[in-house]
Simulated assay, not measured.
Amino acid sequence: MLLKRSLGEKIFDSGNAALMVALSVITLYPLLYVLFASLSAPEFVVQNRGIILYPHGFTVEAYKMVFNNPNIVSAFGNTLFYVAAGTALNIILTALGAYGLSRRNVMLKNLIMFLIVFTMFFEGGLIPLYLTIKNIGMLDSRLSLIVPTAISAFNLIIMRTAFQAVPESLEESARIDGAGDWTILFRVVLPLSMPVVAVMLLFYGVSHWNAWFYATIFLQDRDLFPLQLILREILISNDTSSMAAGVSSSDQMTVGETIKYATIIVATAPILLLYPFLQKYFVKGVMIGAIKE
């Protein structure tokens, strides 16, 4: 039998629902504004000074101009490479480190963990990092955006904590059957830790997708630029003439506004579309790393 809720409980639940709706609108509307503006007629976007609730004068010309820009296409391919190669390296190295530090019979484990945590509070700085990248010959190469960020100390701690939650009896059973550490890691521990692996994929993938700072420091060849760096140049310099080459000079400023909005959508949509596929693992994986130690 269901208990009848009091008036105070109903008011509290209604208030919570209203607050969640308001927060959702506040969070989503800026992105929806950019989307609607990118699909609206350039003249309307330039003249509009208020909110936009739907595309006015629906058009996709801004997206056609964006994808006709060779810099955008090249940068998009570079970003996909950085995300795929960088995330794969991140997951492999983080899993290897987390597995070793999660075993109970590892010598100097506590000292190693202290040194790893120490790097979260103190670091050498940008100049030593730049000199290191330069001296090992990775300056102005794709590796400069992948290798320096190969392992995140925070993500390593989360994955280590998740690996520690795997029952020790499973490892003992695998060793009795003749399994070694490689087999235990890839056949036992990782399959049982897929929620936290999904979280790592999302954390590392988003980090690589949004990365632009190291690109400004380590890269000079424009053919290696990631998408976010090209987007940053477009928004800061306010120069969209390369994408509006077929438009008269008098209309380039008008068309340029919708081009900037379309470029933002192109740069953010792929990573937003990835989240729903990992959502069912995300909360569980984060909680594993948050409450176990």
Score class of each variant (00 low, 15 high):
A37W: 14
M20Y: 12
S241P: 01
L93W: 15
L129D: 07
V286A: 11
V46Q: 15
A17D: 11
L235M: 06
V188Y: 11
P226H: 06
R175D: 03
F163Q: 06
A17C: 10
S6V: 01
Y130V: 06
I112R: 08
V21A: 08
L2P: 02
N78K: 11
D251F: 09
V255K: 08
R142S: 14
R160C: 04
I92L: 15
S74N: 12
S250I: 04
V199S: 10
E168H: 14
F121Q: 04
N71E: 13
I234A: 10
M1S: 08
A150C: 11
A18G: 03
I184S: 12
A84E: 09
L192W: 03
P128H: 08
A174T: 12
D177G: 10
L219F: 12
E9I: 02
H56E: 15
I151Y: 10
L89E: 05
I176Y: 14
L53W: 15
F186L: 09
E61L: 08
F277E: 10
T268Y: 03
K284Q: 06
V45S: 11
A150Q: 12
S6Y: 12
A198M: 13
R222L: 01
R222P: 02
L201S: 07
S169Q: 12
N78A: 01
N105P: 01
E43R: 14
V286R: 12
A262Q: 05
T119M: 03
I158Q: 11
Y82C: 03
G86E: 09
W182G: 05
Y281E: 05
I271L: 08
G205A: 04
L115V: 11
L39D: 14
I52W: 14
K4D: 02
A85N: 05
H208G: 00
G100Q: 14
S14I: 14
F118K: 11
A244E: 02
E61Q: 12
F122S: 05
T27N: 12
L131A: 04
F76S: 03
Q47L: 11
Y130I: 04
G15L: 15
R160Y: 05
K10L: 08
L23M: 14
W209I: 02
F225Y: 15
G100P: 05
Y63T: 04
I72L: 03
L145F: 13
